[in-house]
Design a protein around this nucleic acid. Structure first.
Lengths: 241, 241
DNA sequence: ACAATCTAACTGTGATCACAGATCGCGGCA
DNA sequence: TGCCGCGATCTGTGATCACAGTTAGATTGT
């Protein structure tokens, strides 16, 4: 793959080699991204266990990259390793769920407000695209939970990215990693929340307010969205303690 | 060290063995804590490079625990590994400094407000203790920068812990890891900021407001504190770009 | 005297081995 | 039939080796 058609060893960099230079993505980085996606989209249930070796074998590599990725996720408490050395998705108590929800209301609410002040035209395009994608699933007679989860996530993060504060986006990603397993695994169990919940309405208000530059309303729409989902989760009684 | 004075193999757990059980802290965890402390207290300057092997040799261990600790810090961008494989404390541009300050104002401001609502008696004791420790250094004719940095950090986090939101405390720790090298390394260079800056006054207002349960004033005192330091840092002209 | 070149040392990343401790299943005793 | 005990297996963590790629220093050629 490297120098098949290269007449000389030291040649002028081609477009392909340039791409390789831009960012050599490490294996551990790829595993990290993979596990993040699984957690955020609720494909891993709270309490689900895994082992470094089994994951490594599944992905066809040694345990080293898996080890690094898991260590990073354990570091920010998206995963946990028990005293017995078992790695699992943390269980969620009612108290912890409420704590995370409180922080989300403050942080994501601030983000919505900032997004309304800073959004660019391309931000609005992205938001509208994912709002529509979510709407399609919510209205569908046969809604695909994973598609809805994905659209919901993309819509929210389109708003958050519009703040122009990448650090803030990173913080919110950390929050979603922790709450995703509960929020979205539950959604896959009871997908009727797509219809009964007010998500569609709050998304409409959110996008409209951000577009209009109305920060206060944007914050209110977002916090209503979060609280709506939180109320539903608490009502299911699936939380511990 | 294990069974020197043990008459039997399976004996009733003593206090010492119990302590060992409570949480077996891994080597990587200890290195992580060590590096965090160095970053937060500004003992590592922006741009400072290190290598896994040299750190490992200094700490008297193999590179594995260092590798894990660095991977975690790179993961949340408290460190960075360049394309050349050099590990270093990230440089700080003026734009990035302002971004971090914006997020700090929002997140730590919220924390101060919550602390005023939730603080317990023991929280107040801790806050007052570290406020006094900071005051001692600020008023001293021969102020110790590292002592002042430490007292300042402890005071702030006593407030943040008073929120009862450990997730929020974790988020703020992440922010301090990123901004610590600039903020505190600079303080060690020009320690007169201890006197000229309004930190002492804002700390007094902060502790008083949190004690009184006055969230709005607590938030204002804290954001004034952050903005005062930020203004000073920007005025030094040591930021890039 | 200076610049080009080449080699030796060093870099992070991935794989493999080692190890103490936990888990689980099978066998045997009651 | 039910419970205990004892290996075999599996766990995360630490150490070591391997490797491609970079860096820096010395040596050579002009």
């Amino acid at each position: 793959m490297s120098t098949l058609s290269s007449p000389r060893i030291t040649e002028t960099p081609t477009a392909i080699t340039q791409i390789g230079r831009l960012e050599r993505v490490t294996l551990g980085e790829r595993v990290h991204a993979e596990l993040r996606e699984l957690l955020m989209s609720g494909e891993l249930a709270p309490g689900q266990k895994m082992s470094l070796r089994s994951v490594a074998e599944t992905l066809g590599m040694s345990i080293m990259p898996v080890r690094e990725a898991v260590a990073r996720l354990v570091s920010d408490q998206s995963l946990e390793v028990l005293p017995n050395r078992a790695v699992r998705v943390p269980l969620m108590s009612r108290a912890r769920f409420r704590e995370l929800t409180s922080v989300r209301l403050a942080v994501e609410g601030f983000a919505a407000e900032e997004a309304a002040r800073n959004r660019s035209a391309s931000d609005l395009v992205a938001m509208q695209r994912f709002e529509e994608a979510f709407l399609d699933q919510a209205r569908s007679p046969d809604p695909q939970a994973d598609q809805a989860v994905r659209a919901n996530k993309e819509l929210h993060f389109a708003v958050y990215r519009a703040t122009g504060l990448p650090t803030l986006v990173g913080i919110i990603e950390g929050l979603w990693l922790k709450i995703g397993p509960v929020l979205n695994f539950d959604l896959k169990i009871s997908p009727d929340r797509l219809r009964t919940g007010g998500a569609v309405e709050q998304h409409r208000r959110l996008v409209a307010a951000v577009s209009a530059g109305d920060g206060a309303t944007a914050r209110k729409a977002l916090t209503d969205d979060i609280e709506g989902a939180a109320t539903f989760i608490e009502s299911t009684g699936r939380l511990l303690d």
